[in-house]
Amino acid sequence: MGDTRTSLIGSRAILFEAPCPFDLEHQQRFWALAEACAAWPGVLEAVPGMTNLTLLLDRVPVDIDRLARDLDALWSSGQRRQVDGRTLEIDIVYGGKGGPHLAEVAEMTDLSIDEVVRRHSGPTYTVYAVGSHAGYCYLGGLDPRLETPRRKTPLTRLPGGSLSVAGLQTGVSASAGPSGWNTIGAAEVAFFDPGRDPAALLRPGDQIRFRPVDVLT
């Protein structure tokens, strides 16, 4: 077996990780893995994370060693799944009340505020994973110069539409809730609507572009 790792995150939930670079090519391997595992007996849901995979099972996996071997073998096959997704453009107000940590991020990255905004709104981001809260998209493609640590104490309530960064990740919250990330801007988008089918606006493989409409200090 390779140096992949399968661990328990609940009575009936396991996490599969493989040491790999954090990029689209490897994320596509996790998308392929998720698609294959979803068809396994006993797997209720197979949900990709950020270069990892969570399986929700219909029972306690007393056979976790076998599952670990199967996952490792499937990972080693190197199969990728390419998704021809849609692209969503989102207007962002950087800084101000909706982005209280923008100045802090500029300081931590040793960049000017304008440079943080320029580098953040430059790339086209790919939805690597959907999760945390309903409709929330984890995005890949953040400029590595914008890498920041998570906050030591999470905020207990951040409004929906908040644009945040942490580590090499960035995203816009779909609803109000707690957050341990650094919030740098705000948007207005309905990422999740229970009356819509599918309820989540985006799925892994879709793309997002951020359009700065204002930068407040």
Partner: peptide
């Protein structure tokens, strides 16, 4: 070091930096 975001479920005991 920061972990990459991953699945969690009810019952998980997490330990933030504090």
């Amino acid at each position: 070091g920061e972990l990459r975001s991953h699945g969690i479920v009810p019952g998980i005991v997490q330990v933030p930096g504090g």
